[in-house]
Design a protein around this nucleic acid. Structure first.
Lengths: 238, 238
DNA sequence: GATGTCATTATGTCTAGACATAATAATTGC
DNA sequence: GCAATTATTATGTCTAGACATAATGACATC
């Protein structure tokens, strides 16, 4: 009813956020429709739509045609993790980046890799990325030579496979998994830790349409953690 | 120049994506401005804006006023991880959810927790969540009684602190870290594994404006992995 | 040469109105 | 009563035009 006459869709978002947070609109509550809100805020419906859509994308609101907009009942915490190039990741910590190629052979990948990468010939590249001389992450990668034949002639001593692929092999979608693994003998010796030590491992596979491009296992040195913030938005604590 | 006359902003997004992917617009390339693209696609500028803005939010395009829009040079892989309520997480795996409260005391939190949660009195809640009888995750939580005094009277035997807070304690923002830790003696006995075993650990702290609400450490049973897809969009493989 | 102003440019956002679409509610026919 | 049809409703999207804003480049000034 009150005309707030705020300016911009962000101000509307803030006000909606405030009401959710203040439990004026508790979880599950159906909020007024866009036309009513537009009138209340003294703006066009498109502006309200912009604000509500953004909140829905963040998982805070559930929107369904005809049914209306309601405050999310199971506010799924949506954490966005930015994964950059390893060199960049190390340099952002203010450390000197160092890279060492360990091996690079054409081989037939083991069964678990072959399951995702396909049966064709593949390039097996292993490398160690270091920060200020200390081992940072061990990269164990398989590149499909069927999808990316150019990789055969690439020289991974100067540029990491990580970055070479960035520049030469596009992909359409991928698949990431985070897990904790016990360090193998190889992991341990490379990362300068004990066998069996808990390592943070990122496993990634990328596809170009239907063809798998590369599968990589990144084993980080002990102490590594991925850190991210959730929301300047609101939900409920859980 | 060619009029494609596609329908909808998603079709425009697809076409832009195709050009990026086909290296017609390589990384770093400045793409035509919105007005020109709108003319090419035979639509309003707002529609082009919608498509490009979505791609920029995904990290694929860099947009700056006046400078124009260019294909991202360092395509940061942006993985969004959805973290739901533990009960839901287990039930989605088709398992029977079981919850057991281990302890619930008012105490002064240890230094590392106190650093984030503040010096006031806090409730220490520990619990074990299981799926089909097998231990799934060990929850070790501190709740600030200054921020959430109601927690003192709550009964966490029937409902987990995880879910109680969802319903009673709103938050504005938070902080998540994923790491790999060696199982402590307590972790090991509860999760039915060996001491020193690699565990996937999620550490989360949430705030309500300036006041910390709760800090929790979730130690998952061995084998746990967080899994997510990246992009139906395009980038480069890395 | 260094600095400050102004015009230009591309994106950012807003408006008012329109049609599309999906899901629900009401109504009709059997 | 039950099923099929129709109306209603709220969101989804698009349009054409407008002004705002930030960054750049050109020009003028010191």
């Amino acid at each position: 009813m009150t005309k707030h006459h705020v300016k911009g869709w962000q101000a509307i978002q803030d006000e909606v956020l405030r009401r959710i947070h203040a439990r004026e609109w508790p979880p599950g509550h159906v909020i007024p429709n866009e036309v009513d809100l537009a009138q209340e805020f003294g703006c066009a419906r498109a502006t309200v739509n912009r604000a509500l859509r953004a909140l829905a994308e963040e998982g805070l609101l559930d929107r369904r045609r005809k049914a209306g907009t309601r405050v999310a009942l199971h506010p799924v915490t949506r954490a966005t993790v930015d994964i950059s190039v390893i060199r960049q990741e190390i340099e952002e910590r203010g450390q000197h980046y160092d890279y060492r190629l360990l091996a690079c052979d054409t081989a037939s990948p083991p069964a678990p890799v072959r399951a995702t990468l396909g049966a064709g010939p593949a390039l097996h590249v292993t490398a160690l990325h270091s920060g200020d001389g200390a081992p940072y992450v061990f990269e164990d990668r398989w590149i499909s030579l069927k999808t990316t034949p150019d990789a055969r002639g690439a020289d991974f001593t100067g540029i990491s496979a990580n970055e070479w692929l960035l520049a030469h092999a596009p992909y359409t979608h991928g698949d990431i998994a985070f897990s904790a693994e016990a360090a193998s003998a190889q992991d341990a010796s490379l990362l300068n830790t004990a066998e069996g030590a808990p390592l943070f491992v990122v496993s990634r596979t990328t596809w170009d349409h239907d063809c798998a491009v590369t599968a990589v296992r990144l084993a980080y040195a002990p102490g590594y953690r991925i850190h991210t913030r959730i929301g300047a938005q609101s939900d409920s604590a859980g």
